[in-house]
């Protein structure tokens, strides 16, 4: 359903490309993991899929096929029509990803405002449903709250609710649990697993943390210096890593707790 072929991202300010000929695919209804340390190019990969890279700062080549349509061949207006509707994005810092001056509800339903005609009452109903779906207790209160009034975990749930409100085909998760406490991390991961199973939304999970990817993703790829060094089933990848870099990564996980899923 998402096919990335020979994706190359070159920032004008840097000499070497941030992403260099990367290819992978996310199966329909599946969760694909992308592991790598910071600077490996995984975030640039996610941003180019989401269409959020500034054209003035970077050039993107290759193909990104969403259900057979090459996203890179679309005009920016056509990209915007897909953004939020077909592709949802969840960012690393939930507190920064929310407009501090706007109530959560208005931000969650913003996607509805941008895609299609919904009355205010419909928007609110859908937003409350999405917040409840993200397992937020008392969605009414969250709907009325400002970002600074909620905890990081609640904000990230609200971000997930906002990203999924129009039931997109693909959810991009860029380090969705990195900024959260360990206990909250586990809750968010199980929420994502449940949403994937129940809604059938495909997910691309990006993380520097093998354990996070191991818990959620049946298949994954390891990225280093803009290239994929190894791709395969997560189990096999971690049990019998072939590439030296993957071996190093696996060895660095204390107690080998990656086999969660």
């Amino acid at each position: 359903m998402l096919e990335v072929q020979e994706l190359t991202v070159r920032f004008h300010s840097a000499e070497t490309p941030a992403v260099n000929g990367v290819s992978f695919s996310v199966p329909t209804g599946g969760i694909f993991g992308l592991v790598g340390e910071s600077g490996s190019g995984k975030t640039a990969t996610a941003l180019s899929i989401a269409g959020l890279l500034d054209c003035a700062a970077a050039s993107v080549s290759g193909r990104i096929l969403l259900d057979g349509v090459d996203l890179l061949s679309l005009s920016s207006k056509e990209r915007r029509r897909l953004a939020g509707k077909e592709i949802g994005v969840v960012f690393q810092e939930p507190a920064a990803a929310m407009d501090p001056l706007m109530r959560i509800g208005r931000q969650v339903e913003e996607t509805l405002l941008l895609h299609g005609r919904f009355s205010a009452a419909e928007r609110k109903k859908k937003a409350l449903a999405a917040l409840a779906e993200a397992e937020l207790p008392d969605p009414e209160r969250v709907y009325r709250s400002y970002p600074h009034e909620l905890s990081g975990g609640m904000l990230q749930r609200s971000m997930i609710a906002a990203a999924l409100i129009l039931r997109p085909k693909l959810l991009l998760l860029d380090e969705p649990t990195t900024a959260l406490d360990v206990t909250v991390q586990a809750q968010i991961l199980s929420l994502l697993g449940r949403l994937n199973a129940e809604q059938g939304v495909s997910m691309l999970l990006i993380s520097h943390d093998l354990r996070v990817v191991g818990r959620l993703c049946p298949t994954a790829a390891v990225m280093k210096d803009g290239r994929l060094v190894e791709t395969g089933e997560t189990e096999a990848l971690f049990r019998a890593p072939r590439h030296p870099y993957t071996k190093k990564l696996v060895a660095s996980v204390p107690g080998g707790e990656y086999n969660g899923a």
């Binding site: 959020l52 915007r80 029509r81 939020g84 920064a96 990803a97 929310m98 913003e110 971000m159 990203a163």
Partner: peptide, 16 residues
């Protein structure tokens, strides 16, 4: 800031 990026990810135009 990230919230601008988040709004763009929802399909908002620059002017919006």
């Amino acid at each position: 800031k990230d919230y601008v990026r988040a709004a763009a990810a929802r399909g908002a135009s620059g002017a919006f």
